[in-house]
Design a protein around this nucleic acid. Structure first.
Ligand SMILES: [Mn+2]
Ligand SMILES: [Mn+2]
Ligand SMILES: [Mn+2]
Ligand SMILES: [Mn+2]
Lengths: 220, 220
DNA sequence: ATATATTTTTAGGTTAGTCTAAATTTTTTA
DNA sequence: TAAAAAATTTAGACTAACCTAAAAATATAT
């Protein structure tokens, strides 16, 4: 039996909220993320449990089964590959592709995904720095730092974002903070944790804690 | 209000069955094409009529309104552009792309379609020789001949197919009959209208009336 | 011009996914 | 540890898109 568009979205969201440790996800958290009501979530959870895609005990929250995890990762693979296509081939900005990929990720053909992957040169990361699962379903989250964990004087590489909102990505564009940029932390203000950073050895700019909290970086 | 996946399919099918002259399409014909029952079609027709997308008088068949026509042509544009993408960029065969395009044609973003079109170099025809509507919604069906209308001794260019079934397209592949091939009619058998044709000045082969009826060609 | 056959519509129901309101369970607080 | 608050589930209902069976309209044949 094929999974519906809606079921795939639930699985993907459970995967995201469950995190690497596979913690239980609450009904309310799912209602929030799916923009539905808790009662609707409960209905869907019963269905996903019946299909063997989630572990569900009433009032106890849910986690993905192995089979649910597999489906979720396939959807994530498609989402991220399509985002690469949209940016690399069609020339979209990284702030424009999420909603379109949200639709494309549900196109069912396996062979399509594999041909797309080949066409794109088997990319390992999407335009936001998120890792792309391989064809076998292996997804390894690199362990990046958040910029707030970086000390004054350190130079790090910009590797990804936590917030994917267009407004945030556009803000980064205007600041010249792109994937791969070298960020040197020049100063951190004790008062509000805002920071002064130098980008690619060029201009120095101030960024708020809000921005720092959403930047994934790596020591070199 | 956005049109649903299902509504778009109805409009596209009404467009196809209605033809260039815009003849009325019957409930049964739509039931056949949509693989649903006549009663379901009636339900949908009432809905499409309420939305102003079709002209509908009970028992009298339907035609598209201008606004319905516009929607149908947009869907056709997307379908055919995606087919070009799948064949030209991803390396699918022309016999493999229809079902995938059937899904991709419902992805909503306007800007996506236009960027895709640009990326593909504004193609005028899809892999089956069908014309691609332009961004303004102009769709001009070239008036090709059917191979059955070609006389012995004439040389014509293969321009398209009427049957889009994978089995038919694969049969053409095996026969070396591709878009743009030169077909010279060497002989027509009176008994069953099967024909002997020469492809690109090379091999001569026999084709049945069934095949001839589905080949669109052009005099040079 | 009837009678018969065909087509189409209506009537009444189903399923997926959603909702609000009420009941129940779990968690937190006093 | 009992009361209050919060989270979750249940009950009952809605819409979109489908279905079968029956009724009504149109087309065809005698
Ligand atoms: Mn995304
Ligand atoms: Mn992404
Ligand atoms: Mn097609
Ligand atoms: Mn085509």
């Amino acid at each position: 039996m094929q999974n519906s568009f809606t079921e795939e979205n639930y699985l993907k969201i459970i995967h995201a909220l469950s995190g690497r440790e596979g913690v239980e996800v609450s009904t309310n958290a799912l209602a929030e993320s799916t923009s539905t009501r808790a009662a609707s979530v409960t209905d869907m959870l019963r269905k996903l449990a019946d299909k063997g895609l989630i572990h569900y005990k009433k009032y106890q929250g849910v986690t993905l089964t192995e089979s649910g995890e597999k489906v979720a990762i396939k959807v994530i693979r498609k989402h991220r590959l399509w985002e690469v296509f949209l940016v690399e081939k069609l020339g979209f900005g990284w702030d424009e592709v999420h909603d379109i990929a949200e639709e494309l990720e549900h196109i069912p053909s396996e062979v399509l995904v594999e041909k797309l992957d080949t066409y794109l040169g088997h990319p390992k990361f999407d335009p936001h720095g998120d890792p792309i699962p391989d064809a076998k379903g292996n997804l390894t989250e690199p362990d990046y730092l958040i910029l707030t964990d970086v000390h004054v004087g350190e130079k790090v590489l910009m590797m990804g974002v936590l917030d994917h909102a267009p407004s945030f990505l556009q803000h980064l564009d205007r600041s010249g903070i792109t994937l791969g940029a070298v960020i040197e932390v020049k100063e951190i203000n004790e008062y509000d944790k805002s920071a002064s950073v130098q980008i690619n050895g060029g201009p120095t700019l101030f960024i708020s804690l809000e921005v720092s909290k959403n930047l994934l970086v790596q020591r070199r």
